[in-house]
């Protein structure tokens, strides 16, 4: 009756495995909060000024956050690895982790080049999410649309579709955060908040003036110039 003994052991192992995975059931929730002029950003409703005194409204604000690592731990499943932060929809990410202490967070602002050239993708990378260039394959990493009286473009629009993965135009980049000491208790949720400061979008490493560059819809020099400002926008909110 060896078979029963085997079945018995399999069952025991299964039950133990389930128990262990229950032990891993803690969650780190990362919230993204968006600010301009020290105000929390509200789509369409309210206007902001950049450092050059250019007033603007925001209609769309979306970007990709991917390849997250918390204390070196990566998340291989696509649904955990790729996230679209969209001010109109979802501005937080939930990551399953084992209970413990964590102090370091890394993510890629963008989409790794392999996902830009290996055919149709799903989930956050579904082209139906409207973050995909249809005529020149590749993902828009950061999309900012709005209006400004300083814009000389059609209907005063601001249309920044910042992306690019090839020909030296890759703008996806890793950003590293020191998150203090986050303690994750078993079977519980801990939250951290990343502040996204749009003031730095217009002015940090480079200066981006709406009057000069209201439109950026191609990979290339301007996209790279804007993308150089991304890291300065993201900071961990102090406790």
């Amino acid at each position: 009756m060896k078979i029963f003994r085997t079945l018995f052991f399999v069952t025991v192992i299964f039950i133990t495995a389930v128990n262990i995975s229950f032990g891993q059931n803690s969650t780190l929730k990362i919230n993204f909060e968006h600010y301009a002029n020290g105000k929390k950003i509200v789509l369409s409703d309210s206007s902001y000024n950049n450092i050059f005194g250019e007033q603007y409204f925001i209609k769309k604000l979306r970007y990709y956050v991917s390849n997250l690592k918390v204390n070196g731990q990566a998340f291989t499943e696509d649904s955990l690895n790729y996230h679209l932060i969209d001010l109109a929809k979802s501005t937080s990410i939930k990551l399953p982790l084992t209970a413990g202490k964590y102090n370091k967070l890394v993510f890629m602002l963008g989409v790794d080049s392999s996902r830009n050239c290996s055919g149709i993708q799903q989930g956050a990378l579904d082209p139906a999410k409207d973050m995909f260039w249809t005529w020149n394959t590749g993902y828009v990493v950061f999309k900012l649309e709005g209006t400004s009286s300083s814009s000389n473009a059609d209907r005063n629009r601001i249309e920044h579709h910042v992306g690019g993965y090839r020909f030296g135009n890759n703008i996806s980049q890793f950003i590293t955060f020191n998150i203090g000491e986050v303690v994750l208790k078993p079977d519980s949720i801990s939250e951290i908040t990343i502040n996204v400061n749009l003031d730095r979008y217009w002015d940090s490493v480079n200066t981006i003036r709406i009057s000069e560059d209201p439109i950026c819809t191609l990979p290339g020099t301007l996209a790279k110039k804007i993308a150089a400002n991304f890291p300065a926008m993201f900071t961990v909110k102090p406790e």
């Binding site: 050239c117 055919g119 005529w135 394959t137």
Partner: peptide, 11 residues
């Protein structure tokens, strides 16, 4: 401009 046959129809 299209780098993979699967993403062509999106255009």
């Amino acid at each position: 401009g299209i780098n993979h046959i699967e993403v062509q129809p999106v255009h």
